[in-house]
Nucleic acid binder design. Sequence first.
DNA 1: ACTCGGGTTTCGTGTAGCGGAACGCGGTAT
DNA 2: ATACCGCGTTCCGCTACACGAAACCCGAGT
Lengths: 262, 262
Amino acid sequence: MTPGSDGAAASRRGRSSPVGTSVEKAMRILEALAVEDGPHRLMDVAERAGVPRSTAYRVLATLGAQGFAQNCGDGRYGIGSRLGGLGARVVRMLSTGVGPTLQELQRGAGGNTVHLAVRVGDHAVYLHKVDNDKPYEMRSRVGNQLPLHSTAIGKAILAHLPPGEVEAIVTTAGMASRTPATITEVGALHAELADVRERGFALDDEENELTVRCIGAVVLDRSGRPRGGISVSSVTFMLDREELLGYVPLLQATARKVAGLI
Amino acid sequence: MTPGSDGAAASRRGRSSPVGTSVEKAMRILEALAVEDGPHRLMDVAERAGVPRSTAYRVLATLGAQGFAQNCGDGRYGIGSRLGGLGARVVRMLSTGVGPTLQELQRGAGGNTVHLAVRVGDHAVYLHKVDNDKPYEMRSRVGNQLPLHSTAIGKAILAHLPPGEVEAIVTTAGMASRTPATITEVGALHAELADVRERGFALDDEENELTVRCIGAVVLDRSGRPRGGISVSSVTFMLDREELLGYVPLLQATARKVAGLI
DNA sequence: ACTCGGGTTTCGTGTAGCGGAACGCGGTAT
DNA sequence: ATACCGCGTTCCGCTACACGAAACCCGAGT
């Protein structure tokens, strides 16, 4: 088997938490540390990462000794600065890779704001942003988390996940009502996701933020799993729905291009 | 032993490459993938990470299956998008943590540009930047790499590393001559680093970039090792050396504060 | 004083990580 | 054409290291 391919192997012994190798555990623990700001209790990290407490402790000791994690003195844990250096490099490299492609999209889509986000656990995280050429700008920032059930990128991702995983995500992350238009019922969400799959793009019409309308398309990795998505956004009073939908073909073409660059 | 403490243990079996646990190997491999842009050959990654080829292969297979690394089809490897999501979160979290403190420094230091960088291998990487309030700005960007021997932050870091490690760094990274003032002799560097230690800060007077002058102070982790540094920068024709040096006490105080936030 | 939550430590088990060596394939020199 | 070489990939036997249940310990709440 070649590296980077699926490798659905692993997880044989798994009693309650089917996490495979120790490297995988470590990465999941780092992701668990990065979901929200404050220092985290060992127990929460362990649970979120799906590993037993003592394992989380051992891995955190290793990561801490290397500067990738940090024991905040009291028993709490946070991310370490060495991970910051790595993260800054990674974001910069990926951004420079996709930057030109997304700028083309921005220009071709009326100069409106373009976002690339990738899935991290039960959220998506902005990885790159191309600001619009308008006098105002969106308040989004690289590194911001966004919900999956109420955003165009999020719904595009969910639409390409197996239904069981969608279920798991809404169970743990909930379906917070962000605006009156937010989908807050699991049934309605599944119906919407079927629509998204059929149309090949997702529409967020003030579901996540009042006065903001977005179209989003999924970005798949080479094994067909959804890694993230891209979107074009505008404020509702500047761009009507029809005009925004006119950019869908370009959005989809760009999403396919981005998939090759991730 | 408590996690996050030194833990100089590890590396007993070590034949040629004294790298300990598999988690540590994985993190070093990720760092090796992030040093420069293009896809990397397996061999280069293995060498840079200090692990045998077959080990690098196996770890990359694991990381690739999880989306943290990527096999670019031909035998080359790059970073995966899942690492990008993690990295974006991490940078954002660390930035929001230190942002206010560094903004205070910027205001207290005449509104000049402030940087926070952390060490990654034999370079430093910008993790946060507070732009100046002048009509022009520095071209630096978060995620940029900077050499250690020719920058204020870099010299502040080197000054707090054991001499052997300094030797190793200049051996592998070299001492490129960036301007006529760049220190390019190992002996001169060691002398300069002794100065830096004694004064408690580093000065880069057009050593890395013509017309740019910086003061830098080291940021130590809780076990006393240098994790990175902060700096105040200005163009030479706007700020003479004396005035810049006047900001040293505030710089040092801020560095100590940042050490607690990393 | 008793309990409880949760971080830390211990420990015996066996497995997954390890890395040297062999393989195969494409490119290059002869 | 053939030999060579560099390098990604695969194999394989050994054992160090990961594993996780359970014990331990400390501080807070009652």
